[in-house]
């Protein structure tokens, strides 16, 4: 018996990964894990793009996915720089400790 994954399977998978990323951003407290969760969200989007692209036999989605990867790389570079910057000041990357601005 052969089983072929369909568009719906890919969409459910990518929606699940996206939700895991979203929940990660909301509940995790380590800045690095936070960024990893955001990357997870972006890659779930890539999966959606590719699935739709294959489904429609259309290259636009592939192209979009490449641009998303490039943007995600740029974001990651900036993200790590910002984490380092914060670490230099607080000696910690726990986002709960960033409460200097709330008064």
């Amino acid at each position: 018996m052969s089983w072929e994954p369909t568009l719906a399977h890919y969409l459910i998978l990518s929606a699940a990964i996206f939700s895991i990323g979203m929940i990660g951003v909301m509940v995790r407290r380590n800045a690095i894990i936070l960024f990893m969760s955001i990357e997870l969200m972006l890659n779930a989007v890539n999966l959606t793009f590719i699935a739709f692209s294959r489904y429609r036999i259309d290259m636009d989605g592939h192209i979009f996915a490449f641009f998303v990867m490039a943007v995600a790389a740029a974001e990651a570079a900036v993200a790590l720089a910002i984490v380092l910057h914060v670490f230099r000041h607080k000696r910690s990357v726990n986002v709960d400790e960033m409460q200097q601005l709330q008064y």
Binding site: F35, I38, V83, V86, M98
Partner: peptide
């Protein structure tokens, strides 16, 4: 300033 940048980035990227 670092904290502002961090907060803006996380929510902006999200």
């Amino acid at each position: 300033s670092a904290e502002a940048s961090m907060k803006y980035f996380v929510l902006g990227a999200f």
